[in-house]
Simulated assay, not measured.
Amino acid sequence: MRTERNLTRLDRVFARLDREPERPAHLDVPKMSRHRIALFAATLAFYLAIVWAVLITSWLVRLDWQVMFFRPYQQWPEIHAFVDYYVVLGQRGPTAVMVAAWLGWRSWRQHTLRPLIALGVSLLLLNVTVGAAKIGMGRLGPHYATTIGSNEMWLGGDIFPSGHTANAVVTWGILAYLASTPRARRWLSALSAVVSLGVGMSTVYLGTHWLSDVLLGWAAGLLILLALPWFEPLISRAESWILGLRDRLYARRGRTEPARVPAGTPVAATPPASEREDAPALEPVPASRSRAPAYLAPGPHTARSERTPVTPAGSRRPPHADRHPRNTAPAARHLSGG
């Protein structure tokens, strides 16, 4: 009796993936619309306003010091352990690995490299822009502040803007940017906003960042997400170049590797080397190594009494001219009288 194997859930998932089209037609690439340009300009103005407010040591700096003296980690110590784990959602290494794994699965399913390339471009922009701002302004954090009430700028620090907050905005916001439907984009946008807001406030709770650092980190991450449509032509060219390079490597490998013969295919007999046209010329064997040809009895086979004696080549016995074959009468000799 024949029994069929029950398909597991993983088998059904892979069977569904095999039926996926080459590239879904409903994937739309965001464009730099007027609405997005207006949001970019407003976010850029907010970014510059935060920097200016810190430079002139305005009310925002005084608020930073008040929050620092409040010491939230001492006010609510019971959530300290949870916040220590939650703030990892803003660290670049773990979050980049998690999001890259998800986008890599989407790239394999949709047969496109755009999600992974878009993630790489956004992280590159994040490292360049936020890193340059950190080094350029050199602000010290709350734990290393030297003068009460000062803005702590250009003192060799690297916390302005907040890298955790900006990374949370970009890393989780790229999921909303690459969403395939408007509904998924709205839900993922709200989720990324909540996660990045929580990461920013976690750094303030732990005392590693000023409140103004978090505000500037939110603006820095949002600027990168809003500017990504300007880099879509670059992403498309990079994808085409990578796929073209892959095709050239496959074509080159196909020319150099021998063709695979399916199992069960009859293979033509190969002619001897001496009969092939491209066979190399055989070198003559030296005479010292040559052997005498083997003696073979002539055919058809005859009785021993009917065979003609043949002296093998290379025999040491000298030939006898007066010998005659067996069963034959010797020739008559001339008798000389005397």
Rank of each mutant, 00 (worst) to 15 (best):
P182L: 12
V121M: 13
R183I: 04
L113Q: 03
W241M: 06
L234W: 11
L125V: 08
D213N: 12
R186V: 08
L206V: 06
L123P: 00
N167Q: 13
I159C: 15
I235K: 00
V121N: 05
T147V: 15
D158T: 15
I224N: 04
L228G: 01
L124T: 13
V128M: 11
P115V: 10
V214E: 09
E239Q: 07
A184V: 10
S240A: 13
L228A: 00
L223T: 05
V128I: 14
T171C: 11
G141W: 03
L116F: 04
E152M: 14
V130R: 08
L175W: 07
W108C: 05
I135F: 10
G198A: 08
L123G: 02
L234A: 13
V199S: 07
L113G: 08
Y144D: 14
S180F: 01
I174F: 07
G149Q: 10
R183E: 09
L216R: 03
K134Y: 13
L125S: 11
I135M: 09
R114G: 05
L126P: 01
P229M: 02
P182Q: 11
G156N: 14
L116M: 10
L113T: 03
P161A: 10
L125H: 07
T147C: 03
S150H: 14
L113S: 04
N151P: 11
W241T: 10
G163I: 14
L211D: 00
L206A: 08
L197E: 04
V194K: 02
I242K: 04
L188I: 09
V199R: 06
